[in-house]
């Protein structure tokens, strides 16, 4: 067998092996999309009830003034804004992490123009290494759960964010927190979104008055004709307990949706890798066939040539 032909055959075998791997990864990713989707659907009832409860508690507080809520007054001095970046731990997911990072860069630029210093918090190894490589400051990074986040993971992240948010400005506290995550719309469509998590905004609905039940707040719907509630131990304590939970839940939702998007992105990337491998195998097979044919042709012409030479040598003698 000719050297050329052997090279082609070897390459075909190697591409076939790669194709098997990408095909397997595609199947794994697509089964995990379903799981991730179920997880984010399962988190919905809690969110609905939590939002309702906060709305109710807020409605019983005539002058809400909570450190986690937005205030009218402007903050003096240097403004700092936390950016929570949700990226993947592993690659092979197409442009998934890159898209999030790009959006975060745009946000950071935007904030800087407004005189606000961006402070990066990062989830996922990809985002972390992007910042490390460029020797940029990372406030804090978490890794190891991007493809299957639990509520405890979300709480770990949110606790740090809330703690830093509540710090006074002089100790490096931050004034607002944005989450950059990938919203999962369906298997084919995911959007990178930026959402402000803190400070929270509450749409205040006075007690006893009927309100439009679909008041468009950012996250709090209104309530119609509220009865008077008792609070244990007190309305402030209840709000104190509920608001951080809501912040945590926002982080949790971001993580869950991003995980679903990550799997979807990986599935797509692997499916097109499999297609490419198929294409490559086809081309290589053609080339191998051509090389084989060329070899045969050459052998025939060598024989014919040899016979000719012999014949002419015989004729000469």
């Amino acid at each position: 067998m000719g050297a050329q032909l052997r090279v082609y055959r070897r390459r075909i075998r190697s591409v076939q092996a790669t194709k098997k791997i990408t095909k397997a990864m595609e199947l794994i990713a697509s089964s995990r999309i379903v799981k991730a989707q179920q997880a984010s659907d399962a988190a919905l009832p809690y969110a609905t009830e939590l939002i309702r409860s906060i709305g109710l508690a807020a409605a019983h507080t005539p002058n809400i003034n909570h450190p986690l809520l937005a205030t009218e007054s402007t903050v003096e001095g240097e403004q700092r804004a936390g950016i929570l970046l949700i990226t993947a731990d592993r690659g092979l997911a197409g442009a998934y992490s890159t898209n999030v990072i790009k959006a975060a860069e745009r946000l950071a630029e935007n904030l800087t123009e407004r005189g606000i210093t961006p402070v990066p918090y990062i989830v996922g190894r990809k985002g972390e290494s992007f910042y490390r490589f460029r020797e940029r400051h990372i406030e804090q990074a978490w890794t190891g759960f991007s493809d299957d986040p639990t509520y405890d993971d979300a709480r770990n992240v949110a606790d740090v964010l809330i703690k830093d948010f509540l710090k006074p400005d002089t100790e490096g506290g931050i004034d607002e927190i944005h989450v950059v995550y990938t919203h999962f719309i369906n298997r084919v469509k995911q959007d990178v979104r930026v959402r402000r998590v803190l400070p929270l905004r509450v749409v205040n609905v006075p007690v006893g008055e009927s309100a439009d039940p679909i008041t468009g707040g950012d996250e709090h719907g209104g309530q119609a004709a509220l009865p008077l509630y008792d609070f244990e131990p007190g309305v402030e304590a209840v709000l104190d307990d509920l608001l951080p939970r809501f912040g945590t839940h926002l982080v949790y939702t971001g993580l869950l949706l991003s995980a679903a998007s990550e799997h979807a992105a990986r599935q797509r990337a692997m499916s097109s890798a499999t297609e490419n491998a198929e294409e490559l195998i086809k081309t290589l097979t053609r080339q191998a066939n051509q090389a084989r044919q060329a070899e045969i042709t050459q052998e025939i012409s060598e024989i014919v040539g040899g016979a000719d030479a012999l014949a002419s040598a015989n004729a000469g003698s």
Partner: peptide, 13 residues
């Protein structure tokens, strides 16, 4: 605390 039907509205931690 025990809650039985027709309790007054309440929220508690």
């Amino acid at each position: 605390m025990g809650i039985m039907p027709a309790h007054s509205p309440m929220m508690a931690i």
